[in-house]
């Protein structure tokens, strides 16, 4: 059993999600190689040779990978697939974009977003936004797998001794041009990777009131989210939505403010380590999943929270 993990990077450094995918690959029980497609990627490559469990780092360093698109990265993976029994990537927007293309070309049914490895051909994956967990066995000789990163610890990046092997670029005869990237310079962390999230619901009553969450988010280093009800009411934009049709999150701490706890919201956040609910309705379903519930009017609670956090951070 030999597995190949597709590395994800931003042109300068390896993205942490790759380390979680490597752990999942190692759980298959065989050798693990890493593939990096990039341009002027020497620094990234060097940093990967110490990742525990990696045997070989395959490097395709070429201008066509300066902004790697699915079509070219898939072509590269397909070229090397015959040497492997499994190909894995983190289930990030990058991995989700590339791997199904690889799988379909090789006539393989991909196994998406696994959260557990039962055996080299059997995996656990959430379905229905995590409301059920399916154990599935793949009949394909080659396994193509994306990995839910929150389900696997990152591989350590200290003790490994991988060798580097340069591989040629593979051109895909498909007309796709990278135009530009607009990366958000985040004042608050990204929802899907935030350690703490504070979300507002319909109880916030207006978009203006969402500003009350900002000082708290800032003090906690938290990302701001919202329920679908708040998005549908036009308080905030769609990209803040946490839930089945929005973002699935699993932070260390999730604070739900004025959120009743509709199924579709719970589906997006019930994987959080600790959940806090602040709601004036003590019968709100959100309290059924909250570790700490505070029944109260959010317009009183939020200013208190802001004040208390200020005194907390000033060492009082």
């Amino acid at each position: 059993m030999r597995a190949l993990v597709l590395a994800e990077h931003d042109g300068h450094s390896l993205r942490g999600a790759t380390l979680n995918a490597i752990t999942a690959a190692a759980n298959l029980g065989g050798e693990v190689d890493l593939l990096i497609a990039g341009h002027n990627a020497r620094a990234i490559v060097k940093a990967t040779t110490t990742i525990a469990g990696i045997d070989k780092v395959l490097v395709a360093d070429d201008p066509i990978y300066a902004h790697p698109v699915a079509e070219t990265v898939a072509a590269l993976l397909i070229e090397h697939a015959r040497d492997y029994e499994a190909i894995l990537a983190a289930a990030t927007t990058f991995g989700k974009n590339v791997l199904p293309r690889v799988a379909a070309t090789l006539d393989v049914q991909q196994i998406s977003e696994i959260t557990g490895v039962v055996s080299p051909d059997t995996f656990i994956r959430p379905i229905y936004a995590g409301n059920a967990l399916a154990t599935v066995r793949s009949k394909d000789a080659l396994k193509v797998i994306t990995v839910r990163t929150t389900a696997f610890e990152p591989a350590d990046n200290v003790t490994g001794r991988a060798t580097i092997s340069q591989i040629p670029a593979v051109n895909a005869p498909i007309d796709v041009q990278f135009v530009r990237e607009e990366l958000t310079i985040l004042e608050s962390p990204d929802l899907t990777s935030a350690r703490i999230i504070i979300s507002g619901g319909r109880g916030m009553q207006s978009g203006e009131n969402f500003k009350m969450l900002e000082p708290i988010a800032e003090k906690l280093g938290a990302a701001i989210g919202a329920s679908r009800a708040a998005v549908d009411a036009g308080f905030v934009s769609n990209d803040l939505q946490v839930g089945q049709t929005g973002k699935i999150v699993a932070p260390q701490l999730y604070i739900a403010v004025g959120i009743s706890g509709a199924i579709q919201h719970l589906a997006g956040m019930s994987g959080s380590k600790v959940i806090v609910a602040i709601n004036k309705d003590e019968d709100a379903p959100i309290f059924q999943v909250a570790d700490y519930g505070l029944v109260g009017d959010l317009f009183k609670v939020l200013p208190e929270l802001t004040a208390s956090l200020s005194s907390l951070s000033s060492g009082a």
């Binding site: 379905i127 995590g130 967990l133 154990t135 019930s270």
Partner: peptide, 19 residues
């Protein structure tokens, strides 16, 4: 190509405490 071996409920969260 994927055989569903078993489908289970995820571990249910327990309601915690009110503060």
């Amino acid at each position: 190509r994927l055989i569903t071996v078993r489908v289970e409920e995820p571990q249910q969260r327990q309601a915690g405490i009110k503060v």
